[in-house]
Design a protein around this nucleic acid. Structure first.
Length: 152
DNA sequence: GCCAACGTTGGC
DNA sequence: GCCAACGTTGGC
């Protein structure tokens, strides 16, 4: 069992979308970066736990926790011309992008803000707080996971 | 395979 | 909205 952190813009998909549909899998689609894709495809396993991180919004930080219920499969949005995530260079025969499904686990009582995460020495190796890092899917070590959870 | 130009991310 | 940093594209 591994831990992850996934970034999302809450205007697109927020922890409340999970909380409002606690038994409905959320399709985590739209990852369009190869490094992130490779982790989704090759490493994210069923029952892994995921911090849901809100970016590009007023209150930036870790908002809650979700659990993986379906491992990587072809991201449907890449085939949909109407989707913002449409990729004309992908094909059903050889899909370029993958999605996973997540379900709600927990909404944190308060967002753990990015400032706080940056101030924690134990998180210095977490790509999220490293200069220039833009990874939208990243691994979290058990120690980092506990360190973040302690900020609740 | 190099690398300039362009596009995207995401905090501020 | 700005812009630094990074990623991708495509001509050569």
């Amino acid at each position: 069992m591994s831990y992850w952190l996934f970034k999302t813009e809450p205007s697109e998909c927020s922890i409340d979308d999970f909380a409002n549909a606690p038994d409905t899998p959320i399709v985590w689609e739209g990852v369009r970066n190869y490094q992130a894709r490779n982790m989704l495809r090759d490493e994210v396993q069923k029952d892994d736990l995921v911090f849901i991180y809100h970016s590009s919004c007023k209150l930036i930080g870790v908002a809650g926790i979700a659990r993986v219920v379906r491992t990587a499969y072809p991201d449907p949005s890449q085939f949909s011309a109407a989707s913002a995530y449409f990729d004309a260079k992908s094909s059903h025969e050889s899909p370029r992008w993958v999605a996973v499904d997540l379900v709600f686990v927990e909404k944190l009582p308060a967002i753990i803000p990015l400032d706080k995460l940056k101030s924690l020495a134990k998180l210095s190796e977490l790509p999220l707080v490293q200069r220039g890092s833009r990874l939208s899917v990243m691994p979290v070590t058990p120690e980092q996971w506990q360190s973040i959870l302690q900020q609740r």
